[in-house]
Computed example of a mutant assay.
Amino acid sequence: MASIVKRNKSFGVVYTSYEGGKQKQHWEPYHSYEAALHRKEQVELIQKSGRRGYKAVLII
């Protein structure tokens, strides 16, 4: 699951992935809420599909 966090004038998407059997937290900053929401939906779709240890790629 991913979440959106507001920091000053930007938004961050925070999510957890598994790399090499270890849990790792990722933080991706965005300048608009719409871009952050789009990325959050992408991350949740990838996580729902059950793929672990993926390298996240932003597709606009």
Rank of each mutant, 00 (worst) to 15 (best):
Y18N: 10
S10H: 12
L58F: 14
A36W: 01
V43Y: 00
Q23I: 11
G50C: 02
G12F: 06
S17L: 11
L37W: 05
I46M: 02
S17Y: 13
V14M: 07
G20Q: 10
Q42F: 04
V57K: 12
Y33K: 15
Q23N: 09
K6S: 13
Q47M: 13
H31P: 01
S17T: 15
A2N: 08
E44T: 03
V13H: 00
G21D: 07
K48V: 09
G21N: 09
G12L: 11
M1H: 12
E19K: 14
V13T: 04
E28L: 13
K48E: 09
K24N: 13
P29C: 05
I4S: 02
K22P: 01
G50V: 02
K22T: 13
W27V: 05
Q23P: 06
V13D: 00
F11R: 01
L58M: 08
W27E: 02
Y15M: 04
V5T: 10
R39W: 01
E28C: 08
K24L: 12
Q23G: 06
Q23C: 13
G53F: 06
E19C: 07
K24D: 10
I4F: 03
E34A: 04
G21F: 07
F11Y: 15
K40G: 01
I59E: 12
E19Q: 13
E19A: 11
S32I: 02
R51F: 05
K22I: 11
Q25D: 09
L58S: 09
